[in-house]
């Protein structure tokens, strides 16, 4: 089977139509995963009981397959009267799954902050919430920009899972072309190149963020 360049170029517009879905899912899921993961980690630190509970939740999320979580949200929740659009289920599923990993990253980022920062915030009479938002979170972000970026790339690469719940993302649309035309190489290569391009862009954005945070921090 020869690789047909003309065909590859011809299918680009069709595949790009699914690009915005992939991007939307990836961005929303990354934001969702960061928000949930940060909440999990901050709650985990808030007390002994909450600590055990959140530890369990984080481990549970991380040790069940992402597909199982997606299927659960999509097929089981409706039995309990909760029917959500596929796109929402997809974003929710990826957010929850990656929140478990990001919680761990945030933990490392917060652990690396000097204890004196908490002392100073407390001594100034800042509330716990203000301390987290204005003192801890910015320093944490600086500590973890790189590993957090890696997980954002992982989220992007996990978007094709959503094909199983019929979200029209990029790999799925490439595969539709493949099954219609019996040509597999071209759609897969085109999709692969677009993913590569997106992943590199995310990595660059994260690097930019990292330098900016460092700049503010150091001089």
């Amino acid at each position: 089977m020869d690789f047909n360049h003309a065909f590859a170029i011809e299918i680009v517009p069709t595949i790009l139509q699914a690009l915005h879905t992939t991007l939307l899912v990836a961005v929303l899921s990354s934001i969702g995963a960061a928000a949930i993961g940060f909440t999990l980690e901050v709650t985990r630190r808030s007390g002994r009981l909450a600590g055990y509970a959140m530890r369990f939740v984080i481990d549970f999320i991380r040790s069940t397959p992402v597909l199982a979580q997606l299927y659960f949200l999509f097929f089981v929740l409706p039995f309990y009267g909760i029917t959500l659009p596929a796109m929402v289920v997809g974003v929710l599923g990826l957010s929850i799954y990656y929140s478990g990993y990001l919680a761990e990253v945030f933990k490392a980022g917060i652990d690396a902050i000097h204890r004196g920062q908490w002392d100073a915030a407390k001594a100034l009479g800042l509330s716990g919430f203000d301390t987290i938002i204005f003192v801890i979170a910015p320093q944490m972000l600086r500590n973890i920009a790189a590993p957090m970026g890696n997980y954002f790339v992982s989220v992007l690469k996990a978007t094709p899972y959503l094909a199983v719940i019929a979200v029209p993302e990029m790999l799925g649309s490439g595969f539709d072309i493949a099954s219609d035309t019996f040509r597999y190489a071209e759609p897969l290569v085109v999709v692969g190149i677009i993913f590569l391009f997106l992943a590199i862009s995310i990595a660059q954005l994260v690097r930019l963020l990292e330098t900016r945070l460092n700049a503010a921090h150091n001089r």
């Binding site: 004196g116 920062q117 002392d119 100073a120 001594a123 100034l124 009479g125 800042l126 204005f134 921090h217």
Partner: peptide, 30 residues
């Protein structure tokens, strides 16, 4: 806590904020 000030051996300034912001954060928030 807001009626007692504390100064530490290791300064414990907030490294991501300017000196001025270090001084205004708790005034505004607390």
């Amino acid at each position: 806590r807001r009626s007692i000030g504390m100064v530490f051996q290791s300064f414990n300034l907030f490294p991501h904020l300017s000196v001025l912001q270090n001084c205004t954060l708790a005034q505004v928030r607390a």
